[in-house]
């Protein structure tokens, strides 16, 4: 049998990404750019919510969007057709974005749009409640969207994404009458994972509840820009 030496490493696997994410966050803070990471399962209404949000923010802020998907450009086209700067990222089969991919995407957004400055950049992460939560993207704020048809038990089943999100958007409340979604249970579940996150029951489609969300977000952007 070959003899071998053991080298102690004792290093957290995602340490490099965490350091990279912190660096990106600092750079963005210096540039006064608020970077929001939006996570959800596929079909929860990320694109619809983001579109409504950028329309609301655009009177006050310069906003751009990064769309991350394994394939296709349907989401980016939706944003571009509405007249907002957007780039589509393909993750090449990967289920998430990390800090380095974020940095490259932000750089590319500036290049293709010839903008000097963005106040807000919104990342639509890959539709998945598990993996994106593991990787720090360098965002100023993490947000999770949970839609009514998915069920009120998701905070119990996918702890991490609810632990790390400062805002939980409960989308598609216009569909409440046809689903057995319990609003009290979902609040309890969210609270179990995070004591301080804000919950926003909304319909991104018809605008119900969205004003409270915009107000919260604008407060966050302002606080970020004022250091």
């Amino acid at each position: 049998m070959n003899r071998c030496d053991i080298l102690d490493v004792k290093k957290t696997i995602l340490e490099d990404n965490d350091a990279d994410a912190n660096l990106l966050r600092e750079n963005l803070r210096n540039k006064r750019t608020f970077y929001m990471n939006v996570m959800s399962s596929p079909g929860a209404g990320k694109t619809t919510t983001i579109l409504a949000t950028i329309k609301a923010l655009s009177s006050k802020y310069k906003v751009g969007v990064l769309q991350a998907d394994i394939d296709s450009d349907v989401d980016a086209l939706t944003i571009l057709n509405a007249g907002f700067p957007c780039i589509q990222l393909h993750t090449g089969g990967m289920c998430h974005l990390d800090a380095d991919m974020s940095r490259q995407a932000i750089k590319r957004l500036y290049e293709v749009s010839s903008e000097e400055h963005y106040d807000v950049i919104i990342l639509e992460n890959v539709g998945n409640l598990v993996c994106p939560a593991e990787f720090d993207t360098g965002a100023s704020m993490d947000v999770v969207i949970l839609s009514v048809p998915e069920g009120d038990d998701k905070p119990l089943k996918y702890p991490l994404v609810f632990e790390k999100s400062e805002a939980v958007i409960i989308n598609k409340i216009d569909a409440l009458p046809v689903f057995d979604f319990d609003m009290v249970k979902v609040h309890e579940g969210v609270r179990m994972r995070n004591q301080t996150s804000k919950v926003f029951p909304v319909s991104a489609l018809n605008g119900d509840g969205m004003d409270a969300w915009y107000e919260f977000l604008m407060t966050k952007v302002e606080a970020w820009q004022n250091g």
Binding site: N2, R3, C4, D5, I6, L7, D8, V9, K10, K11, T12, I13, L14
Partner: peptide
């Protein structure tokens, strides 16, 4: 919740 590289083994000199 750990996620660590503990050690690596390399051929002895």
């Amino acid at each position: 919740n750990e996620f660590m590289i503990k050690e690596i083994a390399v051929p002895e000199d």
